[in-house]
Amino acid sequence: MKLVNVSMIKEGEKEQPAKQNKIKGQRHGRTAFWFLLPNLSGFLVFTLTPILAVFVLSLFEWSLIAEPKFVGLRNYIYLFTSDSNFIRVLLNTIFFTIVYLTLNLLVSLTFAAWLNQKIKGIAVYRAILFLPVLVPPVAIALIWQFMYEPSVGLINHLMEAIGLSAVNWLGNEDYAMFALIIMCVWQQFGYNMLIFLAALKGIPQTILEAASIDGAKPLTKFFKISIPSISPAILFAMVMTLITSFQIFDQVFILTNGGPGYATEVLGLYIYKNAFEWFQMGYGAALAVVLFVIILIVTLIQLILQKKWVHYETK
């Protein structure tokens, strides 16, 4: 979510003789390699190795204290045939992802559209709306825990002030998931908002002006011109947000720890509990592999479906 890779390709450079080009390319490659080395070694040691280790570990039974025992595919067989928690946890995760993703995109797009107007002090609003993204999730979860507190919490006070009855947000199975989603949207929408805002600013004024001259209303312009124009940005935001929402952990760990009952037990938390609370490292690793495959498939589906709705600028 935090990493945005922008590759800039300079086109139209003067053509050079092919041979000279090749030598130059090699020299560039070598220099680039040395510059990449620090990052690359970090990636190998702290990212790639652990990822590979998870695949290997998922074939073992390991409590951390006793020696690991090779069990083949037993963890996976148990996961798909006998673990009744898994389905529940998966459904919770999917529910969270769908509702959270939809709300996040709607809210961030709305605010981006609003900020894209000529308003006084726009930089201040933009900064305020982005601020929650910069706060560590754990701190936010702790603060929202107070706000959701049933008797003295801010949210119930506000609800009572407008005539609604107080709710035990974190103690009632019907509300806890929504409490979690609301908090996560509040914290994260600022990131997508900035992406959408930048994309909206990039729409050529000439197109919008032309539409105005043709008599298009503001809403028509927004839905018929702005949205299709920024569809690549929407795709990017969707893919990244979907991945992070499948992986949600910190917020739910602090806010509800999966409860009440199992109302907010999501896959990330279930992996953590298996590995680090019940010390079933192998089973936790198998769950992590399954999560990886799910994210991979869903992301591929998104990338295939994009052809239907994402418009890239054509030359």
Binding site: P150, L170, G171, A176, N257, G259, P260, T264
Partner: peptide, 9 residues
């Protein structure tokens, strides 16, 4: 007694 709230340990 206050209603219980679910939260981490």
């Amino acid at each position: 007694a206050p209603e219980l709230v679910s939260q981490s340990a």
